[in-house]
Design a protein around this nucleic acid. Structure first.
Lengths: 355, 355
DNA sequence: AGAGGTACTACAAACGATTGCAGGAGAATC
DNA sequence: GATTCTCCTGCAATCGTTTGTAGTACCTCT
């Protein structure tokens, strides 16, 4: 049964031996139809009759046949695959990657899967192996880029291929020539600052970076200034030092703030990793949280739930973020623009702001 | 320039229009050789002369040619891709996935990349879309499965395809019919328990599960019993409740231990997520750590570094774990067995055991 | 100069699907 | 019964590689 002689015929020219594989020709023979009908039936083409479709489906099931995606892709030119690249700091251990990106990665995979696409994931800390990896080799229909902005070189590659027409969307988007999706930073910051004010904090410092390419941080800082001014309060920036791990940046900024002599009764850190460092430094300096000083972060990291006191934060809707990225990319691939670019956020009230 | 008429010739039968794409025929024309020589040259076949090879490479670069992986895969039958499946609890938010698995995922991707393979990542909380996804459709050469053991159905699918000869390796491996890789739990537990003993703790309770399919937990518990007995100490099991989030399991087990009246001066939790819950419960009960009670976990979670006191733990070498998984799978695909199956571990001494 | 190597290169057949077009079997109409 | 439709199915080309085999050019040696 099921010899695919319809295809190979008599021409048994020394072919590479290979484990036998069930093809659509076998299914055709089994179902008593032609190979093209099998293809159409399985693709759900309405032109094949229901009866035939069922017969083919049954035969396929019986032979345990599955479409060879590679052949289908070769023919159609579509891969049904999205590449997801997570950019790390050079030499960074996988374990030290900001968990925020992992959560985002998870929801991107989920969203892609819901839309019937696979996800080809890679971690990039170096620019090796990047050249021509994605669309050029037809491995994916488009690319989603997420991860740290502190790896200029890796991003440069994506700016380049985006410039030459590749389908690419990224999270955070440090550079204007890349289509981006970000958290609703203005709203998130407003929630955080208003929450602090509601709790009675007034001298709220902000640990942030004005100069970093991290547009998200910049947006949050600017929104912070606006909120403070609207409330008739004085904004106070504590800048972070470049190139250090985020928690270390938090520790140092907190130390700088404490030593500056500047009065403060609350701290808004532009991301949770920084906030965790801040909290450690506060403990080291015997600053009582939330009694003496309130603290709130941004990103909704899981780790924030376990520290003492637990860390209040603003959490982007990961699920939404993932699907916005995927939808935007698919829209781009389809040739029609999609202007959604902000992921909704919500406030997580935890211990560090409850006085 | 570069019309691929060598191939399509005169037979311009109504073909689907499609964006033009540079093929090896174009490169052949550009370099003045045949298409097959282009293929061989680019593949580094030693049979083509160095001079020709360079000429071809140059032509390819000039035309910005890249091998179409789909065509290559169709022809060779190899995908150069490994599927990685992360099994979640049903309905679990991507954000709540144990970060341990994310770290592992990261190093698997890195290891695969080092061996020249792509990684097709998917998250599974349901068994939908699973049927025939992997080898049958030729999307990947093999599958690595990691994730929670508390999703019996998802694992069942992999047991089934493993049974029918699919190349598959998994982490933790709750069921014997799946080839597995695990942490060196015996050594890790020995490090943890000996560390507690060295610090002067004697009444060491173990929060674990004897019955869970999680073989890793079981191995750790058994090693704990051995270590305790070797040291002439009395082992004491505090069982976890099934089906709850890990941190909640930790909280409850700790509450149960405290209420049991059983004396204890240290706790060994079989994973960090549980340990974090234990720590919270200890705080809630005003148990001073590490003065009154010592605490150590397992897995080396990043979050453990930020809690107060910071959590001592045993960390598997993620990088090693990832490459062992990948090597084992590649060996399996290649048809030769690889017997390595234990990832090395190291002790992380942090605050929760420093008295 | 002719024979026998050596070292490349070209030809053409797969790989397994999708899909435009032509053709065939019935049913309906005259 | 012949003709026209309507549905469906089959033929065959095509996607862009890899690779077995055949062939050509150039050397070397006698």
């Amino acid at each position: 049964m099921g010899s695919n002689d319809t295809k190979s015929g008599e021409s048994q020219v020394a072919r590479t031996i290979r484990p036998y594989r069930v093809t659509s020709f076998d299914v055709a023979a089994e179902a008593g139809v032609s190979q093209s009908t099998v293809s159409r039936a399985l693709a759900g083409d309405p032109v094949v009759s229901e009866a035939t479709r069922l017969r083919v489906a049954e035969a396929a099931r019986r032979l345990n046949y599955h479409v060879d995606e590679n052949a289908a892709r070769l023919r159609t030119g579509k891969t049904g695959t999205l590449a997801v690249v997570l950019i790390c700091r050079p030499g960074e251990n996988r374990k030290d990657v900001n968990p925020f990106y992992f959560s985002l990665l998870g929801s991107i995979c989920a969203a892609a899967s819901n839309r019937g696409h696979e996800t080809l994931v890679s971690f990039q800390d170096t620019t090796e192996n990047l050249s021509g990896m994605y669309q050029e080799q037809r491995k994916a229909d488009g690319v989603i880029v997420i991860g740290t902005t502190e790896n200029r070189e890796a991003w440069a590659y994506f700016q380049e291929i985006a410039g030459s027409g590749a389908n690419i969307v990224c999270w955070g988007a440090p550079w204007d020539d890349l289509p981006w999706v970000r958290s609703d930073n203005a709203e998130g910051t407003r929630l955080a600052v208003r929450h602090l004010i509601d709790k009675g904090y007034r001298q709220i410092a902000c640990i942030a970076s004005e100069t970093s390419p991290q547009r998200q941080f910049k947006e949050r800082y600017e929104a912070y200034v606006t909120c403070m001014e609207d409330a008739g309060l004085q904004p106070h920036l504590v800048p972070i030092e470049k190139g250090l791990p985020r928690d270390e940046q938090g520790r140092r900024a907190m130390a700088a703030l404490a030593q500056s002599g500047q009065a403060f009764d609350a701290v808004f850190a532009v991301c949770d990793e920084i906030a965790l460092g801040v909290l450690e430094e506060m403990h080291a300096r015997a600053i009582r949280v939330p009694q003496d000083v309130g603290l709130i972060g941004f990103d909704g990291l899981r780790a924030g739930a376990h520290v003492t006191p637990s860390l209040s934060s603003v959490e982007p809707d990961f699920q939404a973020a993932g699907s916005i990225l995927v939808e935007k990319l698919l829209a781009m691939i389809g040739g029609k623009p999609d202007e959604t670019r902000r992921a909704p956020v919500r406030l997580i009230e935890r211990g560090s702001t409850q006085r």
